[in-house]
C-alpha cells in the first residue's frame, strides 16, 4: 500500500523540475515543455487527493476527477495557442529565443 506522501513528494519534485525548466531555458518551446511538466505534477496531486478523499468517505467522489479533466483541457488549449504564437513570432522575428521577443518593449 503506497502512502499518500510518496505521491505528494513525487508531484512536488516534478513540479519544481518543471519550474526550473520554465525559469532557465532560453528557447520558448523549452519553456513550454517546463510548463507541461508543471501541469502534469498538478494532475498527479489532484488525483492523489481524489483517491485519498474517496477512500476517506468510503464512496467515489467526482470533484477531483472533474478538476483533473479541466486541467488537462486547459493544458491542451494552452499548448495549441502557445505554439501558434511561437510559430507566428518565429515567422516575423526569425527567432524563438524568449529574450528576443521584445517588440512591445518601450
Amino acid at each position: 500500500m503506497i502512502p499518500l506522501s510518496w505521491y505528494l513528494i513525487l508531484a512536488a519534485v516534478l513540479f519544481l523540475i518543471g519550474l526550473y525548466g520554465a525559469i532557465v531555458r532560453k528557447n520558448a518551446i523549452a519553456i513550454l515543455l517546463g510548463v507541461e511538466l508543471m501541469l502534469n505534477a498538478v494532475n498527479v496531486n489532484l488525483l492523489a487527493f481524489w483517491h485519498y478523499h474517496s477512500q476517506l468517505n468510503g464512496s467515489i467522489e467526482i470533484k477531483g476527477m472533474v478538476f483533473t479533466a479541466i486541467v488537462i483541457l486547459a493544458a491542451a488549449a494552452e499548448a495549441a495557442v502557445a505554439l501558434a504564437i511561437i510559430i507566428s513570432v518565429f515567422r516575423s522575428n526569425k527567432s524563438i529565443v524568449a529574450a528576443d521577443m521584445n517588440t512591445l518593449k518601450g
Binding site: 513550454l32 507541461e36 476527477m65 488537462i72 495549441a80
Partner: peptide, 29 residues
C-alpha cells in the same frame, strides 16, 4: 491511483496530441 480513465486520457491527449504538436513545433523552428 485507480484513475484508469485519466491514464487513457493522458496517453491519448498528452502523448498523442500535445507531445506530437511540440515535436512539430521543434522541427518547424
Amino acid at each position: 491511483l485507480e484513475a484508469s480513465f485519466f491514464a487513457a486520457v493522458q496517453i491519448l491527449v498528452y502523448i498523442g496530441a500535445i507531445a506530437i504538436l511540440l515535436i512539430f513545433a521543434v522541427m518547424l523552428t
